[in-house]
Amino acid sequence: MELRVTGPGPSAPFLGARDVFETAHDLDHPVHVRVRENPDERTWAGHYDDHHVLNISRQAATSVMARELALHEFAHMRRHEDAHPSHVLSMDEVLFLALTGREVERRVLAHCYQIANHVKDIYADDITLSVGPTDKLVTFLESELAAAVADRPTPGQPSGQRLTAGADPSMTAVNAAFALALLERHDAVPGDHRIYDLAHAAGEDAPEIDVDGFRERFGALARDPDESDCRRGLVDAIRTYVDAQETTTGPAAD
């Protein structure tokens, strides 16, 4: 696996991720890692005919999660090279099938893309967690979910107040379902782990979202789906989420 790191950051996390990845997998195309100063861009990958690009902020590249973030992106690259349905399906087609006859708000449309990203992440992390430890991922997902449910109402506030902080409560509930599904899929947490309490809090804040239902959807994704199965699963998940939203006015998703 050919790797080149450029930019104002360390190369060790990426070389370490490559060494771990290569214990069971490889990439046909070289990877160009570009460390950027912009802290708002944690990681994102680009795929081209003859190479991949991993963009990562300097803040992320120097964090304790740097190696794990790189390993996760390498797994996405492997899925892309394999033309895995979750990574090459047309989202325009999926959204057309899921949203025909429906109007959705722009925020809900953005959430549809996030649901699709969760499916991609499940399949990428089937690779990631087959070669790497789960401890840091558990801590990371717990921390992210805890931050989203930290703004609890104080005693005496009326019932029905938001439990989540700045994040959209509906999407926070789906994110919680994703986190549980991923960790359960790899037997990474015991049944009494704190993340279950956090997921329950997220669900309380968004009663329109069936957290257990989404957890089962994500967790039951076929290990080796064909394109039709993958498309059908995405359409059903997106349609279920959109139909759960009470407000469906706004710009239509054509």
Rank of each mutant, 00 (worst) to 15 (best):
V5W: 03
V5N: 05
G7F: 04
P10D: 04
S11H: 07
S11N: 06
G16E: 15
R18C: 07
F21Q: 00
T23W: 07
A24D: 07
A24T: 06
D28Y: 04
D28F: 05
V33N: 00
V35C: 09
R36M: 13
D40H: 14
D40R: 11
R42Q: 11
T43F: 08
W44K: 12
H51G: 15
V53A: 03
I56R: 00
S57C: 04
A60L: 08
A60P: 05
A60E: 07
T62A: 10
S63V: 05
S63Y: 01
L71A: 12
E73K: 13
F74W: 01
A75I: 01
H76A: 06
M77L: 14
R78L: 06
R78A: 12
R78P: 10
V88E: 06
S90A: 15
M91D: 14
M91H: 12
L99W: 14
T100L: 14
V104E: 05
L109Y: 14
A110P: 03
Y113P: 03
Q114G: 14
N117S: 15
N117I: 13
K120R: 08
I122D: 01
I122L: 02
D125Y: 08
T128K: 02
T128S: 04
L129C: 10
L129S: 05
S130L: 10
L137K: 13
L137P: 02
T139R: 14
E142R: 10
E142P: 05
S143D: 08
E144R: 10
A146W: 09
A148K: 15
V149G: 05
V149T: 10
V149Q: 00
A150P: 05
P155E: 11
P155A: 13
P158W: 07
S159L: 13
Q161K: 11
L163K: 08
T164K: 02
A165Y: 06
S170R: 11
V174N: 01
A176Y: 01
A179V: 02
E184S: 11
H186G: 07
H186P: 03
A188S: 15
D197G: 15
A202M: 00
A202S: 04
G203D: 03
G203S: 11
E204F: 08
E208K: 06
E208P: 07
V211Y: 01
D212C: 10
F214I: 03
R215W: 03
R215A: 15
R215Y: 02
G219K: 02
L221N: 01
L221K: 01
D224C: 04
D226Q: 10
D226N: 09
S228N: 12
D229M: 11
D229I: 13
G233N: 02
I238P: 00
T240W: 02
Y241I: 03
D243H: 06
E246T: 15
T249W: 11
T249E: 10
A252Q: 12
A252E: 09
A253H: 09
A253P: 09
